[in-house]
Design a protein around this nucleic acid. Structure first.
Lengths: 153, 153
DNA sequence: TATTGTTATACTCTATAACTATA
DNA sequence: TATAGTTATAGAGTATAACAATA
């Protein structure tokens, strides 16, 4: 089967087939993404954060303990120098602190400050808001059934 | 209500509430994205296409007619020079053609070549594959119910 | 010697400005 | 004058290489 035929098959997928489900899920994902990304991108641009700086904040969500630059670099798949420079920018704006690890003086411990936490939470809030707005567009019946299906998954 | 409390409320959202639904949808979206993006990014890197070049291909999906550089630039929200340069690269690799519009000689008509179409379809196929793999992990029962809920939406 | 982090350098992609050709 | 596209230039962000400090 040629790629071209496969694509066509996907568009024509009969209702109820796995292909139709994959297509509907893809469309839903795309819709949710567009909705969520618009507000997040606008906020991130307004706050003058780079994409990597935003992702650095996200690596702190849930676990507030200090992290080394290396561990952040590894988690984001970003080079150590790039991570170091991104952190430099956050440091200069007072959004994080960088202190020497007393146990291993090669290591710098990075922590989010109070104002950094505010920004980080605002970003996460916006991500959620896009999805919440979509949920609000559904009828109560659709909401209930979608919730019932998703919960076990 | 402080952002911090809002985030906590989301995590604690009682099963059946709109907040729980939004959270589950967000988690699903994140899961699908990670799954889909891994393979797409790997392929795009291997083919040595920039992010913008990939998006240019996507603007041709569904409508095979020639487009002007301006229209592509507008649709992607990319500057005209950046679009022009990205197209230059695709042209040099024989993935598109750039011909003068006989009706208005300021305009260049961009078309996807046969080898360009192959690459474009391979990318789209990978996007879909990630979702299809996820669908395959569901039980037939979950699949049926999810499909029934999504179709009207 | 190996590891953490920083600095030096070069590359890619982008936008704005200046320019050319056509309308 | 206005528009489509290109070329010139500068800036942001990245990676690799070279380096310093510590283990």
């Amino acid at each position: 089967m040629q790629p071209s035929s496969e694509m066509q098959a996907l568009l024509d997928a009969p209702s109820g087939s796995d292909e139709a489900l994959a297509r509907d899920l893809g469309l839903l994902m795309r819709h949710l993404l567009e909705r969520s990304n618009r507000s997040v991108f606008a906020a991130v641009e307004e706050m003058d954060l780079s994409f990597s700086q935003t992702k650095i904040f996200l690596t702190f969500t849930g676990r507030e303990r200090p992290r080394s630059i290396k561990s952040i670099s590894d988690e984001l798949g970003l080079s150590l120098p790039a991570t170091s420079r991104a952190i430099d920018g956050l440091l200069q704006r007072g959004l994080i602190t960088r202190t020497e690890d007393p146990g291993d003086r090669r290591v710098k411990q990075i922590e989010v400050t109070e104002s950094g936490r505010e920004i980080s939470q605002r970003i996460m809030q916006l991500r959620v808001t896009g999805v919440q707005e979509f949920v609000a567009t559904l009828t109560p019946d659709e909401r209930g059934r979608l919730a019932a299906v998703l919960e076990p998954i």
